[in-house]
Design a protein around this nucleic acid. Structure first.
Length: 251
DNA sequence: CCATTAAGAGTGT
DNA sequence: ACACTCTTAATGG
């Protein structure tokens, strides 16, 4: 679950931020950072624990008792649920500023999802007791939190729709647009490294299907590839292909 | 630095 | 889904 073992991060890109205080944090989208002007929230911040997580490391295990809530300070994470046949379904990807583990929170006493780092990560962690206390006493924060939940619910309903109504090709395209929107591009390639398998796990298909759709898109000059990297050439054509079916989602 | 090996991409059946 | 080839990344001398 929570990785206590934290090998001091070595070679990989300087993640040398040591105990970045919330005050100095640059994640403007973080719900805590956003509400720091509240003295209650600011005081609460002292309960924060910082956890480092290496690429590939799992820090939330589906089915394990809920202990707290994670805020992603740095890095990228995939959130997944193990399907009936042992297949993993990627529910969403997360980047800096996002909350992870919120679903096992409330009535549930175990996490309903797993979370694993797809890059070296730094996580901010708060125990469930601390968060609950904050939610009880600070309505401004609670309100933001509620908005966040409402939004999450929308997205997951949209995801269900896309999985059940789109063709494989459309789902792969939808996935490409989603990661492109979320992580952006760097020198004409989507700035995240995902295996074809991971694209498949998000799109709800198999690795082979993804590879085939990708090479078809490549032939049609809609995307380019270089190893694992994928670059979108004609984003509007891809969007069009999905929006024509009225399934273009902004999740 | 090069050579070996492992992992992942891509394709045909 | 499986088997196979090819490419690229990781490892170790």
């Amino acid at each position: 679950m929570i990785s206590t073992s934290n090998i001091t991060s070595t070679s990989t890109k300087n993640i040398s931020l040591v105990n970045t205080a919330c005050m100095a944090c640059t994640n403007e989208h973080c719900l805590i950072k956003k509400n720091l002007k509240s003295p209650v929230v600011s005081e609460f911040t002292k309960q924060r624990k910082q956890i480092r997580c290496k690429k590939g490391q799992q820090f939330i295990m589906e089915g394990a008792p809920v202990t707290g809530l994670f805020f992603l300070l740095h890095g990228k994470v995939k959130v997944l649920r193990t399907g009936l046949h042992g297949k993993e379904q990627i529910v969403r990807f997360a980047k800096e500023g996002e909350i992870i583990g919120h679903r096992g929170f409330g009535t549930k006493e175990t996490y309903s999802i797993s979370a694993v780092a797809i890059e070296d990560c730094i996580l901010c962690y708060f125990s469930i007791e601390n968060i609950q206390e904050l939610l009880r006493v600070e309505p401004i924060f609670t309100y933001d939190f509620m908005l966040f939940y409402a939004n999450e619910l929308n997205k997951s309903e949209d995801k269900v729709k896309s999985l059940s109504q789109m063709t494989v090709r459309e789902r792969v395209i939808d996935t490409l647009l989603y990661v492109n929107r979320k992580f952006g591009r760097k020198s004409s390639f989507i700035s995240i490294l995902l295996s074809r398998r991971e694209y498949a796990d998000y799109a709800g298909t198999t690795e082979e299907q993804v590879i085939r759709v990708l090479s078809a898109l490549k032939k049609e000059k809609l995307i380019t590839t270089k190893g694992k990297r994928i670059g979108i050439v004609d984003i509007s054509l891809l969007q069009k292909e999905i929006s024509e079916h009225n399934f273009y989602l902004d999740s």
